[in-house]
Design a protein around this nucleic acid. Structure first.
Length: 267
DNA sequence: TACGTCAACATGGAAA
DNA sequence: TTTCCATGTTGACGTA
């Protein structure tokens, strides 16, 4: 639930109805290209991160989707934010927040891990502040939306900005959602392809194993055949050195008759 | 309640 | 520097 007015700091009150504002924030590490808040969307607002400055903070820009209003920047370099905290389960929404936020566990979000100096807020805390419930809402795409997305994906697995914008408009989604869907869809496709390839390789491996077993068996069979007597010249009693490779089988096949020397040379 | 799915997110790297 | 993508992860949600 979005309160009609959020108390950002004792001295700063900005009505959401302004529909456009830039709030400076402090972030430990800022790699994300953009940031979106579901709640804001439900109020016909979009949120983007403006000129993030890792370590030094950034700002959150709130705009109306039709961009009809101008952006207002709050001058303070950082904000003192009081987050709602009425229960152990999470933050409760309220008209203004004056209590301090409870310690939060950021262990699962490395980029946001670590303490924040007083007067600093991080993106997800802004999200929770605006959300009130403190929970990420799970959007489920409708069948129609999924079908259209699938159709478009069949046409091309990636979208250019224009296509993304058009598709988002058509689906009544934010372009970011379309983008995320395509990213996830590509990932799913790749996973599926990998699984298929794995199955193929498993079968191929089985075939090769069987072939290997058969060949080894055949080799053993041949090896077990009676070896021929040493290839020795019956006249000079020399072992025939012209026969390369040696081995019983080779000898049996190729050593007779003795061709390495003429009878004349055999002395 | 365990588990699978999937939208959303975080992050690093490549390309422009 | 910015944008896009691949990849791994998180957490909400549906279902057996």
């Amino acid at each position: 639930m979005l309160p009609s007015q959020i108390s950002i700091a004792p001295s700063i009150h900005r009505s959401i109805d302004d529909r456009s504002a830039v709030w400076p924030i402090a972030m430990d590490d800022d790699r994300s290209d953009r940031l979106s808040l579901n709640l804001i969307t439900s109020h016909d607002l979009s949120v983007s991160k403006v000129r993030p400055r890792p370590g030094a903070g950034g700002s959150l820009k709130f705009e109306k989707s039709d961009q009809s209003t101008t952006t207002t920047t709050i001058a303070e370099p950082s904000l003192t934010l009081g987050l709602p905290c009425s229960t152990d389960a999470g933050y409760a929404a309220g008209p203004s927040y004056s209590s301090s936020p409870p310690p939060r566990d950021h262990s699962m979000t490395p980029s946001l891990a670590g303490g924040h100096a007083k007067g600093e807020i991080v993106a997800d805390e802004v999200e929770e502040l605006l959300d009130g419930a403190g929970a990420r809402k799970k959007l489920r795409l409708t069948k129609e939306q999924s079908a259209l997305l699938e159709d478009k994906f069949k046409e091309h697995a990636t979208l250019n900005p224009k296509q993304k914008e058009a598709l988002a408009k058509q689906l009544k989604l934010r372009p970011r959602q379309v983008e995320v869907w395509f990213q996830n869809r590509r990932a799913r496709t790749k996973t599926k392809k990998t699984e298929v390839e794995l199955e193929f390789l498993k079968k191929w491996c089985g075939t090769l194993r069987e072939e290997n077993r058969r060949l080894r068996s055949e080799l053993n069979e041949l090896k077990s055949m009676q070896p021929p007597p040493p290839a020795m010249c019956p006249t000079c009693k020399k072992v025939d050195s012209s026969v390369s490779g040696g081995g019983h089988v080779a000898a049996a096949k190729y050593c007779y008759p003795f061709a390495h020397h003429s009878s004349a040379a055999c002395t």
